[in-house]
Design a protein around this nucleic acid. Structure first.
Lengths: 216, 216
DNA sequence: TAGATTGTTAATCGATTAACAATC
DNA sequence: TAGATTGTTAATCGATTAACAATC
C-alpha cells in the first residue's frame, strides 16, 4: 500500500507469480502488457496488479502499460534474485536429494554450498557435485563457510534441535520441509514453510467436501 | 463463519495445522485443551480458534475446553482423511520419486495406485512397490482403474497438456508441482499448487529485504 | 488531439479480534 | 455455587475492488 516500508505478506507472496508470468510473456516475445491483459491471463483484477506493483514503484506508463522486460527485471531485483545466499541442505534422504537436484537455486537468489546427513553410509556421495557431509561437521563447516540459509529436509523430531543449532550458528533464514512449526519458536528469522502434507490434506478436503472455487 | 455451507479458504487452510498440533497433544498424553492454551502454542488468537472450529460444529464445552482426542478425530473427519482417493503420480523423476516414497498418502485420505513416466528406460522400476508405467498407457489405466487424483511432477511444458488429458479422463483433483498455473485454465476442479520455487523466492525476499515478522 | 491506461484515492468486502452472555 | 471457557455477536482491521483524475 505504501511505497516500500511495510509491504504486506499478501503482496509479497504474489510477486513470484508475477515473475513467472512475465517470464512467459518474455519467452512469447511480448514487449508490453497492460494491467488489464495481465489480469485476464492471471485470473485476478487489474486493480490488484496496479496496487501491488505500486508498492515498489511506478513501473508503468499511462496509455502504454508495462514494459515486459523491464518489469521482469524490476521484480527480479525486488525479490533479490541477483543475490547468491549461501545455502546448506540438511537431510539427504529422498526429499533432500530431490530438492538438491531439482531446484534451480542459482536462478532464485541462492547458492548451494553444502549437504548434510546423519547417516555415515551416504557421506561422501556426490549430489549435484557436492559431497554429502556428516552432520557432526556442521559446526565447523558453518564457522568456516558462513552459510546464510538452511533447507531443512529432516523428520519432525530432528527439526527443533537442528533449527536451534543452525540459528545459533548464524543462519538467517530457513526453508522448512519438516512437519514442525519452527516459526512459533523462532519468530526472529524468516522461515518459509513447505508443509507438503498440509497441502495434501487441503486437497483432500476440497475434493471430498467442495465442488470448488479456483485458488492461486 | 457459518455452520458449513461456504467455509472460507483461509479457514480450510488452517485445518491441517490444527490437526498437526492436536496430533502432538495426543502424543503428549493431553486429554483436554482450552482455546487459550492452544492459541499460545500455535501463535494465534484464541478467538480465531473458536471461530474456526465453530464453522464445523460446537466441539467444545464451556468451562472445560476441547477434548483433544475427540477434536483430533473430528478434524480428521472434516478433512476427509478416512477417504482413500485413488491417486496416480505423473512423472517419476527426482521429485515424483521423493513424493512417492516420502508422503504418507494413506494417512492423508489418498491411496497411491499408479506411477507414470515418459522415459522407457525407467518403466518397470518399482517405487514403493508400484511399477513405473509408460505414459502411453495412462488412458487405458484410467479407464480401468478410475483414479480420482493426479500428482503432477512434470516440467512446465508438459503440464498443460497432461492436465487437459487427465481431466478429460475424469480426474477430480490435482496436486500440482509443475511451475505452471493450471488453476486459471481449469477452475472446474480443485487444484492444490506447490510452487516450490515461488516459496523459495519469497524466502529470498524476506531474507534480503525484511528483518521479519513471523508467518504460519 | 483523442484514446488508452496508469497511479492513487475512496468504497467495499472479508477476515480477524474483542467482548460478553450462555453454560458447563 | 463460583470459575472457567465456550459459542456467538459486534467492532476493528486489512485487503481487494472500483472509480477517476493525471498523463503518456
Amino acid at each position: 500500500m505504501n511505497r516500500d516500508g511495510n509491504i504486506s505478506m499478501s503482496v509479497i507472496k504474489r510477486l513470484p507469480r508475477y515473475y513467472r508470468f512475465l517470464d512467459d510473456l518474455k519467452s512469447l516475445g511480448m514487449e508490453r502488457i497492460s494491467s488489464k491483459e495481465l489480469s485476464r491471463r492471471m485470473g485476478l483484477t487489474a486493480s490488484q496488479i496496479r496496487q501491488d506493483l505500486n508498492c515498489f514503484g511506478g513501473f508503468g506508463q499511462q496509455g502504454y502499460g508495462y514494459n515486459v522486460a523491464q518489469l521482469h527485471k524490476e521484480i527480479a531485483s525486488i525479490l533479490g534474485l541477483d543475490s547468491a545466499l549461501k545455502t546448506v541442505i540438511i537431510g539427504a534422504g529422498n526429499l533432500g536429494r530431490a530438492i538438491a537436484t531439482h531446484m534451480e537455486f542459482d536462478k532464485r537468489g541462492f547458492s548451494l554450498i553444502g549437504i548434510f546427513d546423519n547417516k555415515e553410509a551416504i557421506c561422501g556421495q556426490l549430489i549435484r557435485g557436492l559431497p554429502v557431509r556428516h552432520i557432526d561437521s556442521l559446526d565447523d563447516f558453518c564457522r568456516e563457510s558462513k552459510p546464510q540459509i538452511a533447507v531443512l529436509c529432516v523428520p519432525k523430531d530432528a527439526a527443533k534441535e537442528l533449527a536451534d543449532q543452525l540459528i545459533s550458528l548464524g543462519i538467517k533464514g530457513i526453508w522448512n520441509f519438516s512437519h514442525y512449526d519452527l516459526s512459533v519458536m523462532h519468530p526472529e528469522i524468516p522461515i518459509e514453510n513447505v508443509h507438503l502434507s498440509d497441502s495434501l490434506m487441503t486437497l483432500c478436503y476440497r475434493v471430498t467436501r467442495d465442488g470448488e472455487a479456483p485458488k492461486h
